[in-house]
């Protein structure tokens, strides 16, 4: 049973990897989507959604801009959700482990990109000879490398990983496990500040505090403050265009 689940999950991981490689980057590899899909496939949607969301908060600020290869939110959530659903490892522990898993995934991603450098030589040759089929082949071989170097490690992590992790957790004293529990609500702060690092500067500070105020003091719902944000953005845009 675990074998079949691990195989299916590994294949799904390869498909999620291909979201940003071959399907045009639709963010299917974000933890909440991964959580939903794995939850449906493994038969526990609620846990999938919940754990996916918690891991998402840790990786909130992880965006793949330019050549940056950040810690890999996809393998972190695939393996995390898998462990939570199949081995019953609790959400807080999985969340605390998600970044280290993501860093392992990051390393694999870097490896893929380094390997794919050899295809630059291939396309140089094919372009000079007018060999368009060679160019097509180069692209898809590179994509295949991404797939394999994602699916195989994920399979290993799913099939062999949960037991090892559970054994370690069982050996830990309560203050540590309770501390890990608590960290799952504190760790989103890290996700927030990394996202802020990308979006925030003193010019946009008023808008950040506006959002904070609307939520903290008025308890406004997500769509509520999103609408207000769009309204303000449009007013600013019209003003800038009109001036």
């Amino acid at each position: 049973m675990l074998l079949v689940q691990s195989l299916i999950t590994a294949l799904l991981a390869g498909i999620f990897r291909w979201d940003s490689r071959c399907f045009g980057q639709n963010l299917l590899d974000e933890p909440i989507v991964v959580g939903m899909v794995l939850g449906l496939v493994l038969g526990d949607l609620k846990t999938g959604l919940y754990v996916g969301a918690q891991i998402q908060l840790v990786f909130l600020g992880i965006v793949s801009i330019g050549a940056a290869t950040p810690p890999d939110k996809m393998t972190a959530s695939v393996i995390g959700v898998f462990w939570a659903i199949t081995a019953g490892i609790d959400a807080a522990t999985v969340v605390a482990l998600s970044m280290p898993i993501g860093i392992l995934g990051q390393f694999l991603g870097i490896l893929c990109r380094v390997i794919n450098t050899r295809f630059n030589l291939t396309i140089d040759k094919c372009a000079a000879e007018g060999d368009t089929k060679g160019i097509d082949r180069a692209l898809w071989t590179g994509a295949a490398i991404f797939f394999v170097l994602t699916a195989v490690p994920v399979f290993i992590g799913c099939y062999f990983g949960a037991d090892a992790v559970q054994a370690i957790i069982d050996a830990l004293p309560p203050v540590i496990t309770n501390g890990l529990q608590r960290s799952s609500s504190i760790l989103p702060a890290m996700g927030m500040c990394i996202l802020m690092n990308y979006l925030y500067d003193s010019h946009y500070a008023p808008y950040l505090f506006l959002g904070f105020t609307l939520s903290a003091f008025l308890g406004m719902s997500t769509l509520g403050y999103t609408f207000i944000a769009c309204v303000i953005a449009l007013i600013t845009y019209n003003y800038a265009r009109g001036a």
Partner: peptide, 19 residues
């Protein structure tokens, strides 16, 4: 500029609701 405004408002409110 407009897109950054919206992004910052959302992050601000997430600080209040998700941490």
């Amino acid at each position: 500029d407009a897109t950054k405004i919206v992004g910052n408002v959302v992050v601000g409110s997430m600080i209040a609701t998700m941490v």
